[in-house]
């Protein structure tokens, strides 16, 4: 078998296939222009906040206090989400797509990128809180990204694609991916989930179309890529939600605009619940309060 594979590879080489190999490095893609690229590392902090104190989400065994409208304590069983189509905006207002490096948590696709963030730390498995990328040198003043998986990647079956191949993020019943997998264990009550993803999906003889995309496009102005972080604040997301009660058949919010548990969280993400189309109010999600600019200010309360 190995011999077979070798001869196939050899033949392929002789046919000149190697020339069409996709090269993901920014240098290579930009080598026809004079712009040089530079490495960019942007950290994404998951935290909960209360009375001006910021607590990093990074441990399954830590109890986080004052969560939700009923001010309860909870441990965090799972905390993952996808960001995609991450772009920097320069001082002239030009958008430049970040080129992320292929890794277990990152995928660079044609015209878009995808990064999975994972804050589950009780197991020995790896986690990720970093966008590891490169970008053409320039004077950047803002960052833009989408909470969610791009439409073109969302419905691929059994993908051999980094980040997308994490089976825990599969959302089989909507033939796509969970954009967020946030699972809380409030003290004294049942598990509360926040699973966001495209809903109302339909298979049209092989191609999947979803009525409610539920993707959130976020822009953070005055963002310094050399030192600022992107913050995902759980406390803001569930500020007006009672995580100790369940208002639908599913525990918490499983992405449905019909589930009362979703309505208050969707407001925080600026998803227009009146339009029932899973899109943000206006042309963007500028009223969202979950994401903000930070500077590694979260306090590590797990003692790690």
């Amino acid at each position: 078998m190995k011999k077979t594979m070798l001869s196939v590879a050899l033949m392929a080489l002789l046919m000149g296939c190697n020339e069409s190999k996709v090269d993901n490095t920014a240098d290579n893609n930009n080598n026809k222009t004079d712009i040089k690229s530079k490495d960019v590392k942007i950290y994404v902090e998951a935290l909960s906040s209360h009375n001006g104190e910021f607590r990093a989400i990074n441990d399954k065994n830590t109890t986080y206090t004052n969560l939700g409208s009923s001010d309860v304590n909870a441990t965090i069983k799972d905390f993952r989400f996808f960001l995609s189509d991450i772009k920097l905006i320069n001082k002239d207002g030009k958008e430049v797509l970040l080129k992320v490096k292929e890794s277990d948590y990152q995928h660079q696709d044609t015209n878009t990128n995808l990064v999975l963030f994972d804050y589950e730390t009780s197991s020995n498995k790896t986690t990720n809180n970093l966008i590891d990328a490169s970008v053409a040198q320039g004077d950047y003043t803002a960052i833009e990204f989408t909470l969610g998986v791009p439409e073109k990647l969302n419905h691929i079956e059994f993908p051999d694609i980094n980040a997308l191949n994490h089976s825990k993020m599969a959302w089989n019943w909507q033939a796509g991916r969970k954009f967020t997998k946030i699972e809380l264990l409030p003290n004294g009550s049942k598990q509360w989930n926040f699973h966001l993803g495209s809903t109302g999906c339909k298979d049209n003889d092989g191609s999947i179309e979803c009525k409610q995309p539920n993707r959130v496009r976020v822009k953070l102005d005055n963002f310094d890529i050399t030192k600022d972080t992107i913050v995902f604040d759980l406390s803001k997301l569930i500020e007006d939600t009672d995580i100790t009660t369940n208002d639908g058949a599913k525990p918490g919010c499983m992405g449905s605009l019909a589930d009362k548990d979703c309505l208050d969280t969707f407001v925080k993400l600026d998803i227009n619940i009146d339009a029932k189309d899973g899109k943000c109010t206006g042309s963007d999600c500028s009223e969202q309060v979950v994401f903000s600019t930070g500077s590694n200010r979260a306090k590590n309360i797990s003692g790690k």
Binding site: S167, N172, C201, D203, K250
Partner: peptide
Amino acid sequence: NSALGTIERYITTPLSNDDPKELGLVSEHE
């Protein structure tokens, strides 16, 4: 379910879904 148009797409549900859990082949047990 309008989203599940092939047996392949459908099977992942009883096989690996969390809720409802049928076979329970979720990723940590793969």
